[in-house]
Structures are given as structure tokens and as C-alpha cells.
Write a protein that binds this DNA or RNA. Structure first.
Length: 233
DNA sequence: GCGACAG
DNA sequence: ATCTTGTCGC
């Protein structure tokens, strides 16, 4: 009785991964989130970073088909080393707070097509800046064992002051007394982006790595590359 | 009951 | 996310 819905194991890279059932109903998904929350790691726990990964999802056929893109960039030059694009049937509708259950199946399929595992992964969407701390970046990190950072274009939860206007500056995103993310001015004169720990990456590191992946655009090169692929352009 | 609500 | 053309501004 009281059996956990989670199963733990170690992958071939020595990273702990978590497996669980994939409910198709909202209550079932929230129950899984409640279990997963206990295993989120918000401090740095990853090795040398030579490559950066990017994940993004797109849809076609009125949403019936999910297009998932995964890219690997050289962390130093930001050149694209590898990319993968897969199509899988969409299983869940979009429900605020349950985005990961809609997008992760495709993301896993795309990651499987890569010849190499990126050392640090940027996910399009929030990490712990989520009502139950289980944004898509965090969830993906838990099930893959990969260090992840959430980079979102809009706020989901939490409150914040206006982000400073200088490039690279930020203001905390708060939920009650907790700092759950950063509202970062990635570029002067444009709307800020929301950075949060996914899994095994501290907020300050997430901010630092995001800055390193920024060039002249609002979004880091990792998500831009994945975006291009997933949106078929 | 009334808003808010990643992608 | 996706549906969609031109258009204002650097």
C-alpha cells in the first residue's frame, strides 16, 4: 500500500533517472507531479560543459501530430553540431500547468535520435517557476537525468518587478518568499525572458549559461536553433 | 464566483 | 502552439 508511482534507475551515463506512468487525465498528471517534486535538485550537479542542448516542440495537423526538435551546439562557438526532428502522435491537449505531459514524449524521441547527449540542456518553457515546481524543463531533467534550464517567453506563475533595462540584467521572479526564477533582459528594448532551474542546475548557473548562449537576439542560440527545426523553417 | 493561465 | 500580410522602425 502507499506504493510510489515512481521507479528509479541509473542510466548508462551514471545519471539517476525516474520513470513513471503517463496518465491522460489531469488529476493523474497532478498526482505524478506531487511525487516528482520530492526529487528536484536545484543546485549544480553536472560535469564539464562542452556541448549545449536545445529542445522545442511544434505541432501540425491541428495539433494531432507533435514535432519535436533536439539540437546540440558547441558550448564555446555556439555552432550547431547536430540536430534531430521527430514526429509522434499528440497524446494530451495543452492544459496550463501540465505542459510537460504533452511535450515530453516527443522530446524524449528527439533526444533518442541524437548520437550524443548534450552536457546541459535548455528547454523551451519553465523549470521550477511553476505552481507545483514541475515545469517542462524540470520534468524532462528528472526523467532523463540531464541537467536542464527552463527558458520561457512568458510568465506562468510568480510575481516580479519590471526587469532592469540593461542587457543581461535581471530581477527575481518570486512566489511567496521563494525566488523561483529570473526575469532577464536578454536584449535591450524587448520583452524579458524567464529563466529558472530545471533540474541539477542552480538559478545563478542557469542565468550564466543563458548569457553565454545569447548573441544578438532575445532568445539563446540553443532555443533558436531548436525553434527553427520544430517550426519547420 | 472571478481571473490567470508556459507551449 | 497555430491561424495569417503587411507594415512600422532600426
Amino acid at each position: 500500500m502507499g506504493a510510489s508511482a515512481l521507479t528509479f534507475s541509473t542510466n548508462r551515463h551514471g545519471q539517476r533517472v525516474i520513470a513513471h506512468a503517463w496518465p491522460h487525465d489531469a488529476p493523474g498528471c497532478r498526482a505524478i507531479q506531487a511525487e516528482l517534486t520530492q526529487h528536484i535538485v536545484t543546485h549544480d550537479d553536472f560535469g564539464p560543459v562542452a556541448t549545449l542542448g536545445g529542445i522545442d516542440i511544434g505541432f501540425e495537423d491541428g495539433g494531432r501530430t507533435t514535432r519535436a526538435a533536439a539540437v546540440v551546439l558547441d558550448a564555446e562557438t555556439l555552432e550547431i553540431i547536430e540536430r534531430a526532428l521527430v514526429r509522434v502522435p499528440t497524446r494530451m491537449p495543452y492544459i496550463p500547468g501540465l505542459l510537460s505531459f504533452r511535450e515530453i514524449p516527443g522530446a524524449l524521441a528527439a533526444l533518442d535520435q541524437l548520437a550524443q547527449r548534450p552536457d546541459l540542456v535548455f528547454v523551451d518553457g519553465h523549470g521550477i517557476a511553476h505552481p507545483r515546481r514541475l515545469g517542462v524543463a524540470t520534468h524532462l531533467g528528472l526523467v532523463t537525468g540531464l541537467p536542464t534550464i527552463g527558458v520561457a517567453k512568458k510568465r506562468l506563475t510568480g510575481s516580479h518587478d519590471e526587469a532592469p533595462s540593461g542587457r543581461g540584467q535581471w530581477t527575481p521572479l518570486r512566489d511567496k518568499d521563494d525566488i523561483i526564477g529570473a526575469v532577464l533582459r536578454s536584449r535591450v528594448g524587448v520583452k524579458p525572458i524567464f529563466i529558472s532551474s530545471g533540474h541539477r542546475v542552480a538559478l545563478d548557473s542557469g542565468i550564466a549559461w543563458t548569457r553565454r548562449a545569447l548573441t544578438r537576439y532575445r532568445l539563446p542560440e540553443t532555443t533558436r536553433a531548436a525553434d527553427k527545426l520544430a517550426s519547420n523553417r
